[in-house]
Amino acid sequence: MLQIIQSPSKYIQGPNALQKIGCYGKLLADHYLVIADKVVMNITKDIIENSLKTESVQSHFELFNGECSKNEIHRLGDVLKANNCRGVIGVGGGKALDTAKAVAYYNKVPVLIVPTIASNDAPTSALSVIYTEKGEFEEYLMYPTNPDMVFMDTIIVAKAPVRLFVAGMGDALSTYFEGRACSMSRAKTMAGGQSTLAAMGLAKLCYETLLEEGYKAKLAVENGVSTSAVERIIEANTYLSGIGFESSGLAAAHAIHNGFTVLEECHHMYHGEKVAFGTLTQLVLENASEEELETVLDFCDRLGLPITLAQIGVKEGDGFTEKKIMEVAKASCAEGETIHNMPFKVTPERVYAAILTADALGKAWRA
């Protein structure tokens, strides 16, 4: 099998990076459909519109309805065609960005990605996670290329809710461990081949950066400021994790996240929060060393990432049953899920046991 690494054509990060979108965007199209939800639109519309106008680039702004579903993708595609747009700018969080990528793909136009939060590694990837209208995971939509450009305005990101910033670290936390598992099993990655030295190097750097800078960055963002630690975590959450997961592979952590989407009580949790618990569960599945488990438990607990079932909404008093967790385990092991990239056979029974053990470890750590 070939070894493959892939990435966006251009990654642009720094204070006020969004003010340059017209300068770079004009290289690819002269008329953009700009997609964002209401809150994000209020924050960014004037900046984007003024930057595009300065470079004589036209724009049409359309509100994103909140779910990266097939219906929403088709609706926005119709808006793009009705307004003769020749490019897409997606602004906001993971679902808005994934939707923008899908609209651009189906209409064969370039896409510029503008995250306003560093809550996951979706911005750089050549895939979208498609959900049902009810918010349940449906499928991965794979693209032949990564986004044309990614803009990370660190001033905007630093002012986003702290919980979202921390959730991004939860998502990034899984990158090294899932990549390591895929490397051991020689599994095919999202890039279409086996991982490269460069991809695993980025995944490991991502993990090391989280441990070194994560807590300091959280404290800065709590005060609405951007420091060197914040800049480094934004790069870890977005670029290092994005290239790392896509080109070194996904395994159990993300599959277990997908499993938890079948439980309605978990729908209020962010992607990265569920992935963090999925990472802990993957380490239990692997029978990781006590030292590694304690490092992950300490990192998550200090940042406020969930390490127990109760913290992701599954509480014994709310009808916690063996059946519920087995539903999660079975969904995690569905045909085609990335959990089968683990270097050993995984069954729902093993996942069920690992989830309960991860919960017990988390309870003991917090006690």
Results as ranks from 00 to 15, higher is better:
148 D>V: 03
119 S>L: 05
84 N>G: 04
95 K>I: 06
65 N>Y: 15
101 K>T: 02
146 N>R: 12
128 S>D: 05
107 N>F: 06
153 D>Q: 09
118 A>Y: 13
108 K>S: 13
92 G>Y: 13
149 M>V: 09
87 G>A: 04
134 K>A: 14
53 K>P: 04
121 D>E: 10
91 V>M: 06
75 R>L: 06
119 S>A: 15
105 Y>F: 13
56 S>R: 14
94 G>P: 04
59 S>R: 00
135 G>S: 13
116 T>H: 09
130 I>R: 03
64 F>Y: 15
125 S>R: 12
69 S>A: 07
111 V>L: 00
91 V>E: 01
151 F>A: 05
70 K>A: 11
83 N>Q: 08
138 E>F: 15
129 V>G: 01
149 M>I: 11
130 I>E: 00
149 M>L: 12
144 P>R: 14
120 N>W: 06
63 L>E: 13
77 G>V: 05
135 G>Y: 11
148 D>I: 02
81 K>I: 14
129 V>N: 01
141 L>P: 01
60 H>A: 07
58 Q>W: 01
84 N>K: 15
82 A>S: 15
98 D>P: 11
126 A>Q: 00
96 A>I: 05
119 S>E: 01
61 F>E: 05
96 A>N: 06
129 V>K: 05
112 L>Y: 11
129 V>D: 00
77 G>F: 06
123 P>A: 09
152 M>Q: 11
104 A>Q: 05
125 S>I: 04
138 E>H: 14
97 L>E: 01
85 C>E: 02
154 T>L: 08
139 E>P: 03
122 A>C: 08
70 K>Y: 11
85 C>F: 06
109 V>K: 01
65 N>G: 07
102 A>R: 04
131 Y>K: 00
147 P>N: 02
120 N>K: 09
52 L>I: 03
74 H>V: 12
135 G>P: 09
104 A>H: 09
52 L>W: 04
116 T>N: 04
83 N>D: 08
55 E>N: 10
115 P>M: 09
55 E>K: 09
120 N>I: 08
134 K>L: 07
68 C>S: 10
82 A>N: 13
82 A>F: 07
105 Y>E: 03
101 K>I: 04
118 A>Q: 02
71 N>D: 13
149 M>K: 02
92 G>S: 07
111 V>W: 00
56 S>P: 05
97 L>M: 14
123 P>G: 08
70 K>S: 12
132 T>W: 15
153 D>K: 09
123 P>C: 12
137 F>L: 04
152 M>N: 13
81 K>F: 15
144 P>A: 08
110 P>S: 11
75 R>F: 15
153 D>Y: 15
125 S>E: 03
108 K>G: 05
98 D>W: 11
72 E>Y: 10
96 A>M: 13
89 I>R: 05
132 T>L: 09
63 L>V: 15
98 D>T: 07
104 A>S: 14
73 I>G: 03
125 S>M: 10
84 N>R: 11
134 K>Y: 13
106 Y>I: 11
126 A>C: 06
88 V>I: 11
86 R>H: 14
123 P>H: 09
106 Y>F: 15
84 N>F: 15
92 G>L: 07
141 L>F: 15
124 T>N: 10
75 R>C: 04
111 V>I: 13
71 N>F: 13
134 K>G: 08
74 H>W: 14
98 D>E: 10
107 N>I: 03
121 D>L: 08
88 V>T: 08
108 K>Q: 13
110 P>D: 07
131 Y>W: 12
134 K>F: 14
127 L>S: 10
110 P>N: 04
79 V>P: 00
